[in-house]
């Protein structure tokens, strides 16, 4: 899995590329938590290059979003879900509690609302 970041107006755009599963979830978790510890609390996870997510990936994003909301008044938001990933978000009910956007710019702007 490859992870990169760009920051604009205090919003961290995190781009991940590859399968988000039991073999990669710790990498994503550690990457975002390291940024959290450094004071970053507004994240957009750009999922354009993520073709697959399993229960391990779902749990990681849910727990990070919960911690950001509860401890830092921040959030983890999502941009550009691939159809299969979007369907898994729906089936698992994550789309009811996480904010998902069609493009990264709108997702980032949502923190200014």
């Amino acid at each position: 899995m490859k992870i990169t970041e760009s920051v604009k107006d205090n919003v961290s755009q995190v781009y991940i590329k590859g399968r988000f599963d039991a073999h990669t979830c710790e990498t994503v978790d550690a990457y975002i938590r390291e940024k959290m510890e450094k004071g970053r609390h507004q994240f957009v996870l750009n999922m354009e290059k993520v073709p697959f997510i399993d229960s391990a990936g779902l749990r990681v994003v849910l727990v990070i979003a919960r911690d950001l909301r509860g401890e830092y008044q921040g959030d983890l938001r999502f941009a550009i879900l691939q159809p299969a990933v979007n369907k898994v978000f729906e089936i698992s009910g994550l789309n009811n509690v996480l904010r998902i956007f069609d493009d990264a710019e709108t997702a980032a702007q949502s923190f200014s609302e």
């Binding site: 779902l58 749990r59 849910l62 919960r66 698992s92 009910g93 994550l94 009811n96 509690v97």
Partner: peptide, 10 residues
């Protein structure tokens, strides 16, 4: 054991 939904599990 699958008592909870994914959300409830968290």
């Amino acid at each position: 054991d699958a008592q909870y939904t994914m959300l409830e599990n968290v």
